[in-house]
Simulated assay, not measured.
Amino acid sequence: MNEVLAFDWGTEIVGVLDVKTGLYMAYRGEGEMIEGAKRVLSVEGTIVSFNGNACDLPRLFELLQREQTECALKATHDDMLVITSTIRWAPDPGTGPINGPGLCATYTHYFGESKPSRPCSFTGEYEANNWLDCYMAAELWKKWKRDELAP
């Protein structure tokens, strides 16, 4: 079965959310962050991010001391910043800006003002925010896959 993982790199954490099960894992500290990077980069299926092309993926490759190339990924990478920006602003598919609004503004555009409630099991605010970024990217991805993202 192909996995779908939403991920977010942070200076102290690599967060990974299994989109199908909703299970989140926080990889903290250098050793665990390397394990999180390995998990994301070795998955066969789909990885989901928001601005992962410009930020998160390069940082994961840096953690593993590897060069970033297209063939380095086993998974399909869906960067929801690029996808939502293309949908919202491109006169022709594939020509949209790659620097649309941030994740929270994009999530609010598609889901309204309500913020998702955070599970209580986090070790702190930093981890909760990382989960939230993974969650919002995953929800945008699911809406996109259902063909429900409109300008």
Rank of each mutant, 00 (worst) to 15 (best):
M1K: 03
M1N: 07
N2M: 02
N2S: 11
E3S: 14
E3F: 04
E3D: 07
V4M: 03
L5H: 01
A6M: 07
A6K: 01
F7N: 02
F7S: 07
D8W: 02
D8K: 09
D8N: 15
G10S: 08
T11A: 14
T11Q: 11
E12C: 06
I13H: 09
V14K: 06
G15P: 12
V16W: 13
L17K: 05
V19W: 01
K20T: 01
K20H: 10
G22T: 12
G31M: 11
G36R: 06
A37R: 04
K38T: 09
K38R: 15
R39M: 10
S42T: 12
E44M: 04
E44V: 08
T46G: 00
T46H: 08
I47T: 10
S49C: 04
S49F: 01
F50W: 05
G52A: 10
N53M: 14
A54E: 13
A54S: 12
C55P: 00
P58K: 04
P58D: 06
P58F: 02
P58Q: 09
L60P: 12
L60T: 13
L60N: 12
F61H: 15
E62I: 05
E62Y: 15
L63G: 11
L64C: 13
R66A: 13
E67P: 06
Q68M: 14
T69R: 15
C71H: 13
A72S: 13
L73I: 10
K74Y: 03
K74S: 06
A75T: 14
A75C: 04
A75L: 08
T76V: 10
T76Q: 14
H77G: 04
D79L: 00
D79V: 06
M80T: 09
V82W: 09
I83L: 12
I83F: 05
S85E: 01
T86V: 03
I87V: 15
I87Q: 13
W89S: 13
W89I: 02
A90I: 09
A90Q: 09
D92M: 15
P93H: 08
T95I: 09
T95Y: 11
G96R: 02
G96L: 07
I98G: 06
N99T: 12
N99G: 07
G100V: 04
P101L: 14
P101W: 10
P101N: 08
L103N: 08
C104K: 15
C104E: 15
A105F: 14
A105Q: 15
T106L: 06
Y107F: 15
T108P: 03
Y110T: 00
F111I: 08
F111D: 11
E113C: 02
S114F: 14
P116W: 08
R118H: 07
R118N: 04
S121N: 14
T123R: 14
G124H: 11
G124Y: 03
E125M: 11
E127W: 01
E127M: 07
E127Y: 05
E127N: 00
N129F: 08
N129H: 02
N130E: 01
N130W: 02
W131C: 00
L132R: 10
L132N: 09
C134E: 01
Y135P: 01
M136I: 05
A137D: 00
A137H: 06
A137G: 05
A138R: 05
L140Q: 01
L140R: 02
L140D: 00
W141S: 05
W141C: 08
K142G: 00
K142A: 03
K143H: 09
W144K: 12
W144A: 12
K145Q: 14
K145L: 09
L149K: 02
L149A: 12
P151Y: 00
P151M: 06
P151Q: 09
